[in-house]
Amino acid sequence: MKRNAWILPAMVVVEGIADEAIVNRLLAHIGLTDGWYRLWNTGGKTKILSKLQAYNLAARRQPWFVLLDLDSAACAPTWLSETLPVRSEGMCLRLAVRQVESWLLADKRGVSEYLGVPSDVIPERPDDCAHAKREMLALAARGKHRRCKEMIIKRQGAILEGPLYTFHIQQFATDHWDIDLASTRSESLSRALAALRRWVTLWHLETGV
């Protein structure tokens, strides 16, 4: 399709508030300013999945970027080919392995400073974590900073998400997260970045990217 035939701005769909901050950083990182896209937080993975076919059809004419957590599904390529076998030209569907937190954890130095934990307890390859979000919560439980206490609740030995978890993740992603460093440790992140760059060149007129 000719570049000027795309309906713009592009649509960007995420699962939650924390993902909004992450996606804003990623898109800024590849040189896309916020006037070029509309970001929508659907408030849950199931909501995105129920609309995915519609988004995909719309992506024939409009660029769409959808970010999901892989969660416990076996492997990303299989899941993708089962969920959305035929992807429209404008559709960029990416999965964070296994949660988007792994992309943040991949910035070892940043997380270590933000939570006040020694960097050697942060997983070297966060994509390999069975549950990156739980890993983040466990790290917060060890953390020294006051913010760590606000991120978690301890209940009968379990560490659960606290009321300000999203807020601090959002803050970290916005102000502290080193994307270049993180993409050296998370393959899922570096692949997503590459895919986003390809996606943007597809429709962006002045790709200073």
């Binding site: 309906i7 649509m11 509309r38 929508w40 519609a54 059809l57 719309a58």
Partner: peptide, 25 residues
Amino acid sequence: DEAIRILVDSGATVADAVLPRTKPK
């Protein structure tokens, strides 16, 4: 509005098409 029309024609609802663009910037 083409973007709204296309998304609704693709099977999404007006909420999916309209609310993302009317949320505060």
